[in-house]
Structure formats: C-alpha cells, structure tokens
Simulated scan of single mutants.
Amino acid sequence: MNNDLSAPDAARLLGVSLPTLYSYVSRGLLASVSNGASRRKRYPQEDVLRLAARRNDAKRGGQTAVAAMHWGLPVLETHISQILDGRLLYRGGDAAALAQHATLEMAAGLLWDDNAHDYFQQDAPALPQGLASAPDAAPLMRAMLAMAMLACMPASADTLQSGPALMRILAAALLQTAPSALPLHRQLAQAWRADAGQTELLRAALVLLADHELNTSTFAVRCVASTGASLPAALGAGLAALSGDKHGGGSAAARRMLTQALAASDARDARAAIGKFYATIAPEFAGFGHPLYPLGDPRAAYLLERLSALSHAHPQLRVILAACATAGELLDAKPNADLALAAMELAFAWPEDASMSVFALARSAGWIAHAAEQAASAALIRPRARYIGRHERD
C-alpha cells in the first residue's frame, strides 16, 4: 500500500503553505518522490509525520504527530521533575528549598508518589547468599554488579526489588557495608568519618541530586523500564550511563583540576595550571557551565555556599574554594554540581570516588520514580532515526 501524500495533503498535515512545503524539500528537511508519469511530486507519509513531530515538539511535545506515527521523538511527559527558569523543581516544589531540611528518603517519597506513602519504614533487607560485592572493584562497579545479580533473581525475590530495598542495597554495595536502615546520608557519613557539618552537607547534596529531569542516565532507565524489564535491570542501565566521563565522571575531572591547582607553588602558577587543564577538556564536563542553567546551576550555588560557611574550620577548604573562584573567572563560567562534589570530596579527605557514590545513591531515587512512571504508561520507548546516509537510488 502506497502511503505517499499529495502536496496539499502534506502541507495540511504540517500546517504550512505549499511554498513552505517546497522550501522544506529544497532545504533537505523533507523528501519528495516522483509519481510515475505524472510530474507531480508525492511525499512519504512517515517522513511528513516525523517532520510534523519535530515542528510541534517545542510547543506540545509533538503528541499529535507522534500518536499518528506510533513512534516518536524522545520527549516524555512526566510528573516527577522539571527545570524551569533556572530552578530545579520536584513535583512543582523547589529542590533547593527541600534540601534545607529533607533527607534523601523524604525526597524519594516525594518523587515516587508525592509523599502518599512512607516507604522506608521497612527493615533493611538481608542479602541472599552470593550477592556479596567484589571487594577490589570500584564502588560504582560493585553497585552495577549488585543490580545485575538482582536482575537475574526469580520473581519470588520481589522483597529485594522494591525501591527502598534497592536503595539500601545500593548504599551497601557502594560503601562495602551490610544493608542498613540508618538514614542514607548517615551511612555515608559513618563510612567516611564525617563530622556534623559534613553530614548535613551530605544530606543536602543527596536531596539536590535525587533527580534532574530527563538526563542521559534517566532516559536509559526509562528505555529499559519501557521494555518490561525488572527494576534492578533498569537501575543497572542508569549506573552504566552514569559511569561515563560526560556524566558521572564530571566530578572526577573537576577533582583533577583542583588537585593540579593546589599543587602549584603560587596563585599565578595555579591559574596557569587551571588554564592548561581546560585547554584539553570541556568545562561543562569538569565542573563549569550547564546548558540548562545559563545563569548558574542552583545545586552548585547551594552546596558551595554551605561549603563556604564551613571553611573557617577547614583551612584547606578555603584554598579549594579560592581555586574554584579562579577557575570560574578564567573560564567566565558558573560552577555546576560536579565542582561542588569535587570540592567536598577533596576538602574533607573522603575517598577519591566519594563524589560518584553520592551521585549514584542520590540519583537512584529519581531513577526508581521514572522507572515506575514509565512502566505505568505501558508505552515502549522507540524513537525513529533520521537517515542521512546514501540511498540505493543514488
């Protein structure tokens, strides 16, 4: 069956005039095909619908065209979080305001069902035999291994696959401890011997990093969840995406920059070291800038302000914050959350991979919320590709 459209039909579906339709063809946005002996061009229906989806995406998420195609763009509706006017909102509430008092468990309840239930009343799970993590592996690798093993367990092990149980198992894998019902920020503080001020900073950081709209790892989680895979499998996909240098690796890169600056003999050499570092790496992947926050990342602003308040008791922290300020001036860019995590890790002599552990544990709350929302929609995420290679007819 030939689904090619006439020019008037294609223009009507796109909501444009015929001259605009022809301009789309001349600009390579839309293909046209010859109609046999007739000189009139025809337009592949699927190509027209896909272009309509892209045109409408900025206004309505392309839903009309997407519904007609059954396949669509990777733009998903969500009730969970939003980035709006330079603020991060969890279910319409400011995440920075929530970070002033909430725990990660409270943030998880908000993200999961708007605090309709208190999920963390249950005891910590007892790990089944064979789930012990590899002692010599990095924390993120141990977490990925734990999720992979849980994903292979039978459905009868569903008590180990609830959101609270998985977050506690994740914390245990990251820290190489037994699962605990202790508040998650206190588990981190206990493992890293953090004092009261640092513990509060950890609590706030976990809340601020709990979700971030449709970032790369969250999209990976939603794709896996849309197939009907288990929750541990979906979390494993999130952890895998987080392991990349352009995602979770940003704090490690920021730490390398700070370490090089601190090793300099004076302020001038420190500035030169910072400049040399950023000559080889993009700032947004190493502590500065964020395309969704042109005026600055509010998560970084919150954490760096709290760090500044602690600097009177930590001389090394004052030096680190000075290096952060120098880098910002040199780059003419605002810090992002990666820089704040790196500064915390370095200033308080936490393990070198502590930033990644904080990020992974915090974001697991959002991943669980997105996996549940995607599963409830019963929709398979399957974007279409726009082919730009050679054609057989060429």
Rank of each mutant, 00 (worst) to 15 (best):
residue 383 P to N: 06
residue 122 Q to W: 00
residue 158 D to I: 09
residue 25 V to I: 13
residue 335 P to N: 10
residue 309 A to R: 11
residue 87 R to A: 10
residue 361 L to R: 08
residue 119 Y to P: 06
residue 348 F to N: 09
residue 307 L to N: 03
residue 345 E to H: 02
residue 125 P to N: 08
residue 5 L to S: 11
residue 49 L to Y: 11
residue 225 A to H: 01
residue 12 R to G: 13
residue 55 R to Y: 03
residue 338 D to S: 09
residue 66 V to Y: 05
residue 211 D to W: 03
residue 357 S to V: 00
residue 305 E to K: 14
residue 378 A to F: 07
residue 248 G to D: 10
residue 177 T to M: 07
residue 316 Q to M: 13
residue 282 A to R: 08
residue 71 W to V: 13
residue 365 A to H: 07
residue 35 N to E: 14
residue 21 L to A: 04
residue 344 M to S: 11
residue 85 D to M: 04
residue 100 Q to Y: 02
residue 124 A to E: 00
residue 249 G to P: 11
residue 201 L to D: 09
residue 169 I to D: 03
residue 213 E to P: 12
residue 225 A to M: 07
residue 51 L to H: 05
residue 35 N to F: 10
residue 180 S to P: 06
residue 253 A to I: 08
residue 371 A to F: 04
residue 314 H to Q: 14
residue 142 R to I: 14
residue 321 L to R: 03
residue 2 N to P: 14
residue 46 E to S: 13
residue 352 E to S: 14
residue 104 L to I: 04
residue 41 K to V: 09
residue 110 L to R: 12
residue 218 T to W: 05
residue 297 D to F: 10
residue 386 R to E: 12
residue 88 L to P: 06
residue 359 F to C: 03
residue 63 Q to I: 15
residue 172 A to V: 06
residue 360 A to D: 04
residue 333 A to P: 01
residue 144 M to H: 12
residue 299 R to F: 09
residue 132 A to M: 00
residue 387 Y to C: 07
residue 311 S to H: 13
residue 279 A to K: 03
residue 240 A to I: 11
residue 268 R to W: 08
residue 184 L to W: 07
residue 255 R to T: 15
residue 12 R to I: 05
residue 261 A to D: 14
residue 9 D to P: 09
residue 251 S to W: 02
residue 136 D to I: 06
residue 24 Y to I: 11
residue 68 A to H: 08
residue 299 R to T: 05
residue 231 L to D: 03
residue 343 A to F: 08
residue 321 L to H: 07
residue 365 A to L: 08
residue 293 Y to F: 12
residue 170 L to P: 05
residue 164 P to H: 11
residue 43 Y to M: 09
residue 78 T to P: 13
residue 351 P to Y: 02
residue 169 I to C: 07
residue 137 A to D: 11
residue 61 G to C: 11
residue 201 L to S: 10
residue 212 H to G: 07
residue 295 L to K: 15
residue 115 N to Q: 14
residue 234 A to R: 03
residue 160 L to G: 12
residue 106 M to Y: 06
residue 221 V to G: 08
residue 189 A to C: 03
residue 26 S to L: 11
residue 52 A to L: 15
